[in-house]
Structures are given as C-alpha cells and as structure tokens.
C-alpha cells in the first residue's frame, strides 16, 4: 500500500502579526511549522503503516525552504519526501495548489490513499483536499477522526460533523482529510531524525509534472484577492438577564421593536 500525505508549511500561529496597512500576514522573520492538522495526517499514515505496513510519501508545494517541513515528516517516520517547487507555482490559490499536488500524486502512480489535514491554519479554506480528489477523480471523505481498513481495497472512516458522527465505507484509491481527534502526532525518533537530516529530497517543477505554466501559480488561480480588510465592529450587544422566561420575554420585545419579519 502506498500512502501520499500532503502537507503545508505555515507561519507559527503563536508568533504571527498582521500588517496594519495591507492586512496580510507578516511572514518575514516568523518561524515556520508544519500545519498542525497535517501532522495528524502524517500520524494517520504512520498508524496504518504500523498496523499493516505501507510506504508513505509526503508531498508539499512551496519555496525551497519548505523542505524543512518535509524533513520534519521524515523525522517522524515517513519513508520518502518530494518537494514541489518552481517559480511558476508562486501565487497559487487553492485550485492551482490542488492542480499541482494532484499531478504529483498522479506522477507517483501507485497511490492507494491520499491523506491531508482538514485545513491549513493560515488560509483556513479546507478546499485543497476535496479539490485534489475531484481532479484525481477519486472519492473523498473530510473531517475524519478514525480510519480503519476493511480489506485491501476498502476503508472504513468515521467523520465528525456538526450533527454527529458518520461512518462511511470508501473504496481505494481515495482521499481523506483528518481532524485532531485522530490522535496526537508521535514525536520524532533519533534514527529517523538522522535519516531526515541527510535525505536527498527530489524537487519536482512544472516540467517534471508535465503541467502547463498557465494552469498553475498566479496564472492558474481563479481567486484574485482584491482587498483584505478587517470586518467592521458589530453594533452594541445586549446581554439578557433573569430567568429563562424573563429572557425570552425580553428577546421577544427586542425582536418586535427591531421589526423582524414574522414576529
């Protein structure tokens, strides 16, 4: 079984600042970490490897220094790592990112399962996983807290939704995005750390992936960021007090005064 794990290098949320003029993240001088949700995906892959044996390849798209994120995954026991890096990838939105990652998974050829974190803590879109699955034309399950193997070609996944839990059977190949309930990521081991330090990490660019430069990066992005701004402060808030009955009466009174339709 071959598992591909897609990870992202993000600024350490403990230390980020927002530029007061542009309202964008100040990334200079901020330490980078592996997106925490992606470490749960790495852990999910390692759990399957522990139980059944598997080869795990970790992928990331980013600048050359993103190889640190790959080495972090290697130090926790992942077998191989590939960096997708090319000037042409700069400025990618989620669609261009998914296009790039999906073509890398396709190039790997024999991938049975793609694992991603549910979302990245910088963009917070949760789109890349589902978009990749769509591009690869494979089924996917999001917000998964438990992955079990039914047989060689089928997975049982437990999804956490706002309404409760859903248990799905998924044929492979498929894509799963995971949440933190999956289980705490293991720490590195010294042997894996030493291997990670020395590992030669292949770099794949637009040409290696056989992609049209206009389909990736800023050129391949449908999303154009026009302006970033902080939402205006909400108006005054009123905290209702008293017994439940009194609070309901007050609420009804306020809604009526505000001429809310149907009241």
């Amino acid at each position: 079984m071959h598992i591909a794990v897609c990870i992202k290098q993000v600024p350490d949320a403990k230390n980020v600042r927002i530029d007061p003029d542009t309202h964008t993240l100040v990334r200079q001088g901020v330490e980078s970490i592996v997106n925490p949700f992606d470490l749960f995906a790495v852990e999910a892959a390692l759990k399957i490897k522990d139980a059944l044996g598997a080869r795990i390849t970790v992928l990331t798209m980013g600048p050359p220094q993103a190889d640190e994120a790959l080495r972090e995954a290697l130090s926790r026991g992942v077998d191989d790592a590939i960096l997708l890096s090319d000037r042409a990838f700069a400025g990618s939105d989620t669609w261009a990112t998914s296009t790039t990652l999906a073509s890398a998974v396709r190039k790997l050829g024999d991938v049975d399962l793609v694992l991603c974190g549910k979302q990245a803590i910088d963009g917070d879109t949760a789109q890349v996983g589902p978009e990749m699955a769509t591009l690869l034309d494979i089924p996917y399950a999001t917000f998964v807290k438990k992955i079990e193997m039914i047989d060689e070609r089928h997975l049982k996944v437990t999804r956490q939704t706002d309404e409760g839990m859903e248990i799905w059977k998924l044929p492979m190949p498929s894509l799963v995005t995971v949440i933190k309930e999956l289980g705490e990521p293991r720490l590195p081991s010294l042997r894996h750390k030493m291997r990670a330090k020395k590992a030669e990490i292949p770099v794949w660019g637009v040409n290696d992936l056989g992609l049209d430069p206009s389909a990736v990066g800023l050129a391949g992005s449908y999303t154009q960021v026009v302006r970033v701004f902080s939402p205006p402060r909400r108006g005054d808030r009123i905290v209702l007090q008293g017994t439940i009955e009194e609070q309901v009466d007050q609420l009804y009174h306020y809604l009526k005064e505000a001429k809310v339709p149907g009241i």
């Binding site: 720490l187 590195p188 081991s189 010294l190 750390k193 030493m194 330090k197």
Partner: peptide, 18 residues
C-alpha cells in the same frame, strides 16, 4: 556534533511537550 545536537533537540522536545 550534528548528531549530539539532534539528541539534545529531541530530548528537549520530549521534556517540553511530554
């Protein structure tokens, strides 16, 4: 050495996180 620093780093991480 590089390896000795790795030992320190790993043990420090375990001390801090665990």
């Amino acid at each position: 050495t590089e390896e000795q620093k790795m030992i320190q780093e790993l043990a420090e991480q375990i001390a801090r996180e665990k």
